[in-house]
Design a protein around this nucleic acid. Structure first.
Length: 112
DNA sequence: ATTCTGACGTGGG
DNA sequence: CCCCACGCCAGAA
């Protein structure tokens, strides 16, 4: 709570606006928030987002398109199931055609 | 206060 | 493309 809007809240705002069937990376969000060096904090924010229900954290992966945090969804295949349910193919925790499903907040929201 | 860790990213090899 | 080392910041022990 160093500022009015915690870094977390900003992250939630962006994640909530990720279209269905789309994904983005922690770095993209961090960069959009103006903290490209705090990409790890985005992950930490997601950890706190775990309590919320309207934050599709499963649509957020690392820059390689790998489901690094699937272990935090309470199940080993929960995250993959959710993504596949949206039309995204995943093989070995790796999103296929990652760039194709990539949704960049900087490009889509652009100063929102 | 210090130390480690982590749902990451980048740069060098 | 992969692998390794470092930087980053917040929180837990």
């Amino acid at each position: 709570m160093t500022t009015e809007a915690s870094f977390f809240l900003k992250v939630y705002d962006v994640v909530r606006q990720i279209p269905e069937g789309k994904v983005t990376s922690y770095g993209a969000i961090a960069k959009f928030l103006g903290a490209p060096q705090s990409s790890r904090m985005v992950g930490w924010a997601m950890n706190a987002a775990h309590s919320l229900t309207d934050v599709p954290a499963h649509r957020v992966v690392n820059r390689k398109g790998m489901l690094t945090g699937k272990h935090h969804f309470g199940g080993a295949t929960v995250m993959q199931q959710l993504l596949e349910n949206e039309g995204i193919k995943i093989i070995e925790n790796q999103i296929q055609d990652f760039e194709k499903h990539l949704w960049d907040p900087v490009k889509s929201l652009k100063g929102f």
